[in-house]
Amino acid sequence: MVEEKKAEPSLRERKKQATRQRISNVATGLFFERGFDEVTVAEVARAADVSAMTVFNYFPRKEDLFLDRIPEAVEMFTEAVRQRGPAESPFTALRALALQLIDQQHPLGGLHDNFPHFWRIVIDSPALSARAREGVEEVEEALARTLVETAPELSDPHLAAAMTIAAYRSLYVTTARRLLAGERAATVANEHRARMEAAFDALEGVFGTG
Rank of each mutant, 00 (worst) to 15 (best):
E3I: 14
T19F: 07
F56M: 11
F36C: 03
N190F: 13
M1Q: 06
R95N: 08
L143W: 03
S170R: 14
L159R: 10
E149L: 15
Q104P: 00
R82Y: 10
M76N: 05
T150N: 07
V39R: 04
E72I: 09
A7C: 08
P86L: 07
V50F: 07
P107G: 02
T187F: 09
N190E: 15
L111R: 00
V173D: 14
A27T: 01
L108P: 00
T40I: 10
F66L: 14
A202V: 12
L179N: 01
E197A: 11
A127M: 04
L30P: 00
E88R: 02
E75L: 08
E38A: 15
A142C: 12
G29D: 00
V50D: 02
L180M: 08
L30V: 01
F56I: 09
I165S: 09
V2K: 07
E3P: 08
P152E: 02
F59P: 00
R145C: 12
T150C: 10
R14L: 06
E3Y: 11
M196V: 14
D68F: 14
E72T: 09
A48W: 00
P157G: 05
G109V: 03
N114W: 14
D103I: 05
D49V: 13
P116K: 05
A45D: 07
L11M: 07
F56Q: 10
R95P: 08
E8C: 06
A130K: 11
E88P: 01
N57W: 10
K62Y: 04
E153S: 03
